[in-house]
């Protein structure tokens, strides 16, 4: 568990650095690092499929997109936004944080096997999915079968993003 705590703390540091630095390219690289460490953390949490996706999609594609964007725009962040604006936004953020932390007071502990989240719907996936779908990986079973329409939605999102890019970036055929 110590490694988890360490990784989490590193994440916080990277996140702060990524939004603090002026060099956008460095920020982009930090963001890639953030995603990779996140992927490691998830592997540690046994979410291997997600970790794999995050490493490829989150760390990989996002970073590529970011670098592409920077190369087409510019590399440095200019003067920071006005102080007043920052204070106002900080208040909103702190309020949201307070509300979110407030929720934890009644939340089940991390890793509690008896937490409601692990009791109601999940057991069927765990115990029945291999019979019902014939897939050993429960994540795949749920993804492709029980909640297959989410996956259809996901595919649609990709298609939508593709069409958005065509709409926004394709040049005229001249």
């Amino acid at each position: 568990m110590a490694i988890d705590i360490l990784l989490l703390l590193i994440l916080v540091i990277i996140a702060i650095a990524a939004i603090h630095m002026k060099d956008l390219l460095a920020c982009g690289v930090l963001l890639g690092g953030y995603s990779l460490i996140m992927a490691v953390l998830w592997t540690n949490l046994n979410a291997v499929d997600v970790a794999f996706t995050e490493a490829s999609v989150g760390a990989g594609i996002t970073t590529v997109l970011l670098i592409a964007a920077i190369s087409r725009t510019k590399r440095r962040e200019d003067d920071p936004s006005p102080f007043r604006h920052k204070v106002q936004m900080s208040i909103i953020v702190l309020a949201s944080t307070a509300v979110f932390v407030f929720a934890l007071l009644d939340a089940p502990n991390f890793g509690d096997p008896n937490a409601p989240a692990n009791q109601h719907v999940a057991p069927r996936y765990i115990h029945e999915s291999s019979h019902e779908t014939g897939v050993l990986n429960m994540v795949t079973a749920v993804l492709a079968s029980y909640r297959g329409y989410d996956t259809l939605g996901e595919t649609t999102v990709i298609f939508t993003a593709g069409m958005c890019l065509v709409m926004l970036l394709r040049r005229k055929n001249e």
Partner: peptide, 30 residues
């Protein structure tokens, strides 16, 4: 076993997130 359902949801969400990022960058370039 760990609960597989959050993993499934997040697989979907990651893709959504990247798609949003892509569209955002396209807008930024424009």
């Amino acid at each position: 076993y760990d609960n597989p359902l959050p993993h499934v949801l997040i697989l979907t969400a990651i893709v959504v997130s990247v798609s949003t990022t892509a569209v955002a960058f396209a807008l930024i370039i424009r």
